[in-house]
Amino acid sequence: MTTKEELLQSYHENLQPSDATRRAAAMSAPDLENLPEGHPIRGLRAENEAMNTLIERLLEENEFHEPPASFLPAILRLNGVRTHYAKKEEILMPMLYRYGVTGPSDVMWREDDEIKKELGVLTQTFKEEPDNILLYRGRIRGLLQHMQAMTKKEDLILFPLCLRYFNDDEWYAVYEDAITIGTAFLTGEPEVWEPAEAWKAGQAERLRISEIEEGKVRFEGGALTVRELRAILKLVGVDITFIDTDDMLRFFENEGKVFARPKSALGNAVYDCHPPQVVPAVRQLIADFRAKKRDHMTVWRMIAGKPVSVRYHAVYDRDGKYLGTVEFVQDCTDILAHFKK
């Protein structure tokens, strides 16, 4: 049987050598059981433990002749896994990509998407037809087993890989972003990681000192201070993300909070921030923007039961030179509700 160490070593052997790769390959197997209180991996493993407790109960109740009244609400609670997967996909996986470690993340991202899709279909079905839940025993069992298997893969491959590669500052950034995204399946406040809190305080102070708070940004229609501009952007209620001419994520304002936008993603290639199956479409869209075959695209989607518009616009300077791509994401629930009055 292939051991955890053999699996990890096979991944390292397929990577281009670098200082980080050599350091990771030379490390002994990471100890997942004795991480400091508040470490992000402790939080992710605690989420998995709580989720597996729920899954074991649901697997048992799914075989009852008549599931209890609590069965359906418990099934719907599984949607909390979306928050757990967001931390994997928006924080851990892009950071692994920086080290050239793509294989495990690509496979997991596809499986995560399969789980989320099936969970979404069943959730919608049970909301519309709660009395027919018994007809879906097989699909429920398959979903639960798939989710359970994914927690084992995280423990076996993803978490050890991250511990081999990430340095302290990167873990502190993961800690900060994970708090922003939130927790799944757990009650109470997340554990505090004191070294990371000290790092966050230092980062905030450096940012405060370096900001030109009263410096003005001049436009054709006037000028705004940095402080004024920041305050205005926070009132828009739309997620704004800017990708520069080199296809790197350089800025986001996440007040709409439709999609997770961790700070650790800043400076990443936009292609590392998307599931592998979506990357070809992203590349084509940006190529079209560069070639001026089109200058915008709008996608309408239902996300977590909410109507959302996602608008992509090419950004050009006065001379028509391509500067990058901006994405606007907006939850349209209140807009639709207003027009239905």
Results as ranks from 00 to 15, higher is better:
G237R: 09
E37T: 15
H146S: 14
M302K: 03
Y175V: 10
A204L: 15
T180L: 14
Y11A: 08
Y172S: 06
Y172C: 13
R42T: 14
T102A: 08
I303N: 01
P280G: 09
R23S: 14
Q124V: 03
Q9R: 11
R57D: 06
R23H: 12
A260K: 01
K340G: 12
A198H: 14
K306C: 05
R42G: 05
I243P: 01
G100V: 08
G120S: 12
D239L: 04
D244V: 03
R290S: 07
H338G: 00
N254Q: 07
I240L: 14
A29H: 11
M108R: 02
E56N: 09
H338W: 12
D31L: 11
E6P: 10
L144F: 05
P307G: 02
A20E: 15
K153F: 10
E61F: 04
K87G: 03
P276N: 09
E6Y: 07
G103D: 06
L58I: 01
G267Q: 11
A74D: 15
G43L: 13
M51Q: 09
R98Y: 07
L92Y: 06
E118A: 13
E5F: 06
D244K: 01
E47K: 04
P160Y: 02
L54M: 13
T21D: 09
D169M: 12
A173P: 03
A46M: 05
H65D: 14
W109R: 00
I41R: 01
G100I: 10
E61I: 00
L7V: 10
S210M: 12
M302E: 10
P67D: 05
L229C: 07
R82S: 13
R318Q: 15
T187W: 01
H84L: 11
L144P: 08
R45N: 08
W109M: 03
A198E: 15
P30Y: 03
H65S: 13
A204G: 09
G100S: 06
H274W: 04
P190F: 11
P17Y: 05
A69V: 15
L92G: 01
A291Y: 05
P40I: 05
G100F: 08
S309C: 00
N254E: 05
V226M: 13
L54V: 02
L143Y: 06
P280M: 08
E253I: 00
A287C: 06
N132S: 14
F166A: 08
R290G: 06
Y99M: 02
N14F: 13
E129W: 06
A26Y: 10
I91C: 11
P40D: 07
A265P: 03
L32N: 09
G182H: 13
L158T: 06
T333W: 04
T102I: 04
H12I: 09
T53V: 01
Q145D: 09
E128H: 10
L122H: 05
K216F: 04
